[in-house]
Simulated scan of single mutants.
Amino acid sequence: MATATAETPVSLPRLPTLRTHEGANGTVHWCHMHADLASRTGRACFKPALVADILHYQQVLGERLHREQAQGDTGLRHVVLASDCDAFNLGGDLAYFGNAIRNQDRDALLQYARQCVRGVHAFHAGLGAGAHSIALVQGDALGGGFEAALSCHTIVAEEGVGMGLPEVLFDLFPGMGAYSFLCKRIAPHKAEQMMLSGEVLSSEELHKLGLVDVLAPRGQGVQAVEDVVRSNRRIPRARAAMHQVRALAQPVPLEELLAITGIWVDTALQLGEKSLRTMERLVRAQYRRHGDAAVAHA
């Protein structure tokens, strides 16, 4: 479970599903998902409320960083996506998906998917302010959770964490950035194999594949993030330049991500009862994981 950095935290306005804070020098910004699960049971997934809170946080922080830059502060900033739960994120809101599919509500699915890709693209683009994004994965990152981690410039994962794209279990594919971001790190045919296998791999295996940048011992993820920050502070201009080079050489346009969501929505709307029942079983498993036995066995 993520904890505060070694720097003295400075409180930021809190959103219902997020715990946010920053270092005393204002250059490292932490965003912990699932803050609402600290006091109640639930599912550590990308519920619409969580997606909305992340987008709001990104907008507010991005605007603040732009103001600081306009005032002459051009120092390198870091934004860290972490979790207050024992899972990083278990993926899309399958209960929401199932309900929309049963109702053939294309607009609801498309709006949700577009909001998700705007969020991952913002992390990929450094909030449009040159920030270096870091995913701190201290618990399982599945489906959309893995996509969110892949969208960040650096992935720090603790040992023993499971990460993967299990959407094929209900005959769907991960449509919120997985292919685009994977293909920047591994060969396209390997990306397809990973997406179509549904296999969940360990952080150790993903580190060997080059999909995890920093592998940290269990419980030392925060320290590993701080090491990344310190390393970047020694070469701030070079790191900022590399962001620009990456954007030119390996672009992931928002338009590409939005177009893929259209394919994802049309595929989802074709799913049959068998796939929907599989989604429902996975939803119950997510509840069971966080102790809500009444819902898990409903």
Score class of each variant (00 low, 15 high):
residue 238 A to K: 12
residue 140 D to K: 07
residue 23 G to L: 03
residue 160 G to S: 05
residue 43 R to E: 15
residue 198 G to D: 10
residue 291 G to S: 01
residue 289 R to P: 00
residue 214 V to G: 07
residue 184 K to S: 06
residue 9 P to E: 01
residue 48 P to V: 01
residue 178 A to N: 01
residue 210 G to W: 03
residue 145 G to T: 09
residue 134 I to N: 12
residue 83 S to Q: 05
residue 244 Q to F: 00
residue 87 A to M: 00
residue 295 V to Q: 13
residue 19 R to V: 03
residue 57 Y to V: 02
residue 42 G to A: 10
residue 149 A to G: 14
residue 262 G to I: 09
residue 296 A to L: 01
residue 152 C to M: 14
residue 274 K to I: 05
residue 6 A to Q: 12
residue 109 L to R: 03
residue 177 G to V: 01
residue 184 K to P: 00
residue 41 T to Q: 12
residue 120 V to W: 03
residue 98 G to V: 03
residue 10 V to W: 00
residue 139 G to V: 12
residue 264 W to G: 11
residue 32 H to Q: 15
residue 221 G to C: 08
residue 8 T to A: 11
residue 115 Q to R: 13
residue 198 G to F: 06
residue 272 G to H: 00
residue 166 P to F: 13
residue 60 V to H: 12
residue 174 P to L: 02
residue 108 A to F: 07
residue 224 A to R: 03
residue 41 T to W: 01
residue 5 T to Y: 08
residue 148 A to L: 08
residue 283 V to D: 01
residue 121 H to W: 14
residue 72 G to F: 07
residue 226 E to V: 05
residue 216 A to T: 02
residue 95 A to M: 10
residue 37 L to A: 07
residue 243 H to G: 09
residue 109 L to Y: 01
residue 106 R to W: 12
residue 93 D to C: 02
residue 28 V to H: 01
residue 253 P to M: 01
residue 177 G to A: 01
residue 24 A to T: 04
residue 274 K to R: 04
residue 118 R to H: 11
residue 80 V to R: 05
residue 188 P to S: 11
residue 125 A to T: 09
residue 278 T to K: 08
residue 67 R to E: 15
residue 293 A to N: 08
residue 107 D to V: 12
residue 145 G to R: 04
residue 42 G to V: 10
residue 193 Q to E: 10
residue 117 V to F: 02
residue 142 L to I: 10
residue 248 L to I: 14
residue 279 M to F: 13
residue 254 L to T: 07
residue 165 L to M: 06
residue 66 H to C: 02
residue 223 Q to F: 06
residue 7 E to A: 15
residue 166 P to Q: 08
residue 146 F to E: 06
residue 150 L to I: 11
residue 279 M to T: 08
residue 216 A to I: 10
residue 283 V to T: 05
residue 115 Q to G: 02
residue 250 Q to C: 09
residue 79 V to T: 12
residue 45 C to K: 00
residue 71 Q to H: 08
residue 160 G to K: 03
residue 173 F to K: 04
residue 161 V to C: 04
residue 178 A to F: 02
residue 223 Q to I: 06
residue 57 Y to H: 10
residue 139 G to I: 12
residue 153 H to A: 15
residue 51 V to Y: 01
residue 38 A to Q: 15
residue 10 V to S: 02
residue 68 E to M: 13
residue 67 R to L: 13
residue 193 Q to M: 06
residue 23 G to P: 04
residue 72 G to R: 09
residue 3 T to D: 15
residue 201 L to D: 02
residue 33 M to F: 05
residue 27 T to F: 11
residue 79 V to E: 07
residue 74 T to R: 03
residue 149 A to R: 05
residue 195 M to N: 13
residue 233 R to L: 08
residue 16 P to N: 06
residue 164 G to M: 05
residue 262 G to Y: 03
residue 9 P to M: 09
residue 269 L to D: 07
residue 247 A to N: 11
residue 42 G to R: 03
residue 158 E to Q: 14
residue 255 E to R: 02
residue 88 F to D: 05
residue 97 F to T: 07
residue 254 L to F: 08
residue 26 G to P: 06
residue 259 A to K: 07
residue 176 M to S: 11
residue 94 L to P: 00
residue 30 W to T: 01
residue 97 F to V: 06
residue 257 L to E: 07
residue 86 D to W: 10
residue 41 T to Y: 02
residue 183 C to H: 08
residue 96 Y to A: 15
residue 67 R to K: 14
residue 181 F to G: 04
